[in-house]
């Protein structure tokens, strides 16, 4: 096992983590400010990917597609917030889970109705094709490096937005005391719609970026959604910092687990048996990590007030 391979795998874990962060940041913001648990966040991810694929196919430009994914996901988010989500803020979590579960069904079948049952095509833009050489003889794909870059920019941007701007101040106020900001004369309805659309846009961005690597198809959002929930629960629900740390932790643990566990089990069980058993344990690994963390820190690593 060479150093190059290990560096590459760590980068893979980081890239996976960054992608999860884009999903988890929106989820955790929405929970932190509005107290809402949104299962339909994966659908917004799917909408971003579909919008990007459709626009990129029509115009031939990935970048226009990327812009479209932000717009489409934000618009869908705002629309859903105004039509449905708004009525759920003062409901208990049970109603929220159920209503957003219903939204998943509606979005998934709706997308299939509009775009058909066959997966769509989306490729990475020509400038980002190819790989670069890194220290220690490692090769790494340029596009994945770019995703890591996007993640860092988004994380920094969110930090600045929340700590330095008026909107951020309101978000912080909303996280600590919902009644108070209404009393301060902030138009709370607009604030909520904006925050929801922001979270949706981040999910859409993630969907578009990942859609170019994977496949753009109905149902692509739910597996990522569940991982994003694991991330925010590990990080502490409502905390953007927690989402970042949790996402990278989950990304790296999952990637290294998939890579190392089969080798580890192969030592005891032989190659074929070890490969299947190792893979089985690897697929459960992040849930085990989550259970362990919550057993000791029931509110996650960086608990915001909940």
């Amino acid at each position: 096992m060479s150093t190059a391979l290990i560096i590459e795998q760590l980068l893979n874990g980081l890239q996976f983590g960054v992608m999860l962060f884009l999903m988890a940041a929106g989820l955790t913001l929405i929970f932190g400010v509005m107290g809402l648990i949104n299962l339909a966040h994966g659908s917004l991810y799917m909408i971003g990917a579909f919008a990007c694929a459709v626009v990129a196919a029509a115009t031939g430009s990935f970048w226009l597609g990327l812009a479209a994914s932000l717009v489409a996901a934000a618009a869908a988010g705002a629309l859903v917030e105004l039509a449905v989500i708004r009525r759920l803020y003062d409901r208990d979590h049970l109603d929220q889970v159920l209503a957003t579960f219903a939204l998943i069904l509606i979005f998934s079948e709706g997308a299939r109705w509009v775009f058909g049952s066959f997966p769509l095509y989306l490729d990475i833009p020509p400038v980002l094709q190819g790989a670069v050489s890194l220290l220690g003889g490692a090769h790494y794909q340029l596009y994945r490096l770019a995703i890591i870059g996007v993640g860092i920019v988004v994380a920094a941007g969110l930090y600045l937005l929340i700590s330095r701007t008026r909107l951020g101040m309101r978000i912080r106020a909303g996280q600590s005391d919902r009644e108070m900001i209404a009393a301060l004369g902030v138009d709370i309805g607009t604030l909520y719609t904006v925050v929801f659309a922001l979270g949706a846009a981040l999910a859409g961005l993630a969907g578009a970026l990942v859609g170019a690597l994977q496949s753009v198809q109905v149902g692509m959002g739910e597996p990522v959604l569940i991982l994003a929930f694991v991330v925010i629960v590990i990080g502490g629900i409502g905390s953007v910092k927690g989402a970042l740390v949790g996402a990278i932790l989950v990304g790296v643990v999952d990637t290294l687990g998939r890579f190392l566990l089969p080798k580890l089990f192969a030592i005891f069980l032989g190659p074929a048996e070890g490969a299947t058993t190792g893979a089985a344990v690897a697929s459960m690994l992040i849930y085990i990590v989550m259970a362990l963390i919550l057993a000791f820190r029931p509110k996650g690593l960086f608990a915001a007030n909940t």
């Binding site: 979590h93 029931p298 996650g300 909940t306």
Partner: peptide, 15 residues
Amino acid sequence: LRTSGVYFIMITLAF
């Protein structure tokens, strides 16, 4: 059950 609210929902899902 050491957790509550959303944490409980999510951890039961994870298990």
